[in-house]
Nucleic acid binder design. Sequence first.
DNA 1: GTGAAAGCGCTAACAA
DNA 2: TTGTTAGCGCTTTCAC
Lengths: 347, 347
Amino acid sequence: MVSDTKDNKTITIYDIAKEAGVSASTVSRVLTNSANVRKEKKERVQALIDKYNFKPNALAKGLSDTKSHLIGIVSADVRNPFYAALYVACENAARQRGYNVLLCNSLGEGTREIEQLHMLKQQRVDAIIQIGGRVDDDVTDKTFSKEVTDIVSTIPMVVSGKIEGVKCYSVVIDAKEASTLLTQHLLQLGHRKIALVGGRLDVFSTKIKYDTYKEILEKNNIEFREEYIVNGRYDSETGYSGVKKLLGLKEIPTAIIAINDFAAAGVVRGLTELGFKVPEDISVVSYDNTYIADLLTPKLTSIDYDYETFGKKLIDVAIKAAEGEEVSSLNPITPHLVVRESSAALR
Amino acid sequence: MVSDTKDNKTITIYDIAKEAGVSASTVSRVLTNSANVRKEKKERVQALIDKYNFKPNALAKGLSDTKSHLIGIVSADVRNPFYAALYVACENAARQRGYNVLLCNSLGEGTREIEQLHMLKQQRVDAIIQIGGRVDDDVTDKTFSKEVTDIVSTIPMVVSGKIEGVKCYSVVIDAKEASTLLTQHLLQLGHRKIALVGGRLDVFSTKIKYDTYKEILEKNNIEFREEYIVNGRYDSETGYSGVKKLLGLKEIPTAIIAINDFAAAGVVRGLTELGFKVPEDISVVSYDNTYIADLLTPKLTSIDYDYETFGKKLIDVAIKAAEGEEVSSLNPITPHLVVRESSAALR
DNA sequence: GTGAAAGCGCTAACAA
DNA sequence: TTGTTAGCGCTTTCAC
């Protein structure tokens, strides 16, 4: 076992002050650059800080100025590249503004989500960002909104969806536009038999995507077929079983919109197994444009959100809210279509 | 804009104490369950705590007992599912033991890594876990080890690799065993022409994998061919270009070991493009067994580490070290082979 | 069993 | 420009 690890008494501003022959306040002043300090003293203090590699205790600082400079993020699951990309973008943006980020994964469990909200409150984070989970619900869970109401009375919250009846900020993907881009793309390629695979209708954004799809078909005088809709989860298993169902129809679709890249992976696998070629026989497109879209063969045509900007926006709103600045409570994120190899003109 | 968000003065143990007609110490006692409190008072206090949904300020607590109950994790990049899986496992394990986790992504930049170590020191985390980055180096960077020496004098550190000349704990994958499993698997399938794609030899674990591979070939009287080794990065691009190179050889290999699932994805893509079938024509196996292995078609045979156990071990060692318990400084993780569809007997 | 008081390490008035 | 003082909210002796 490694020994004598923490014998070095950790050094404080008092130690620095004493050795420099100044008061603690003066040390604090050079640390925060909050007031003028005579050049000579400043240098003396700074030299000591460097010498000891002194880092002021963030807990004490936080206690004293009642700001933790921490932003809590509760995400559904960072193992999902959508959340991972967003998280890293948030971390980058936060760091640039002098904040740190505390990440929690709710793993889809509602009780855990609330637990984590409590934990973040306890840590006195300056703001909370919630991405995925209950804030994706089309109709907000009552227990959840009750808890959040309490949180929000003391910590500003920004979500990537919505919480009905609670005053919080939102930075949200324009799902209507996303769905429009994908559907139009397929229509322009000549497809008329377009199926939808994956996703639950009690999820806010999914519902919008489905509604928009129907709307566009209607506008183009294309018959809506119930059997082209296969709801489910957001994983590859759903895509796989979904496509098997579609291929059993009398009139099989010529194009498939998957609810995300995972589902698309399952769709492609199912198609491949049954001898269909993508995109020659059937086109496959999806939402999210995670790196998975780039990893599969063929590479997927997918909807991108510019995660860097998305994360920056999330953090920006959170910090502004935390610092009491004015911010719009509604901030849309504009999606973009990235065309790759999985979609082609109808033969 | 959302208004009046933080007017509710946040409540403290003094408020609770006052309303309950007891002292703050008593409230603290029921909060921490650290001493006996008369049942009646205890209930009175607890009722108030529930009523206000009171959460004690973690910063004050941390300042007071000089423990933040935070564990810092610096990972190379959570967008990589290997790190994501490990991170989530760590988070779960930490939470179970009453700790929270502060995540930083170094994104492969050495300066950033050091910055983050400093930040974690500043946050007074109780321990630091570093996964990936400088601790993967076969020969430790001097600047890095110097910095870490300082850190380690006050905060215990556990790494998934090694830092030469610094007393820190390690929880590390048995790379020799991993390589053995993969190579033996292919040999048993009858393969003799086995190529290696991706990875840098200045990376600790990669070097071991390569050395073990050579060793095993030797033992089996199989000629080692320099041209079957294609070093590179750890991404699909490397796998893609690597396999193209291999297929240009007079004697093309019948099996390929990719350094991770990303590289394997590139390999499969390259093979597919050139009309080779996996595993009928060429077998492909890889390290890490991330979900990508399960997402690709065909599903990949890959080396798994049992991430849940891995994460638990990491946290366990970190907490024990933080709490001054005895822990072994060397903790191996045993890899396992997961056979799927991408490897088959030589025809 | 319980309260008073000191202290954790810092910042922010307030004087000087 | 600088030092003194009083907290920030909690835990923990130490008496009672």
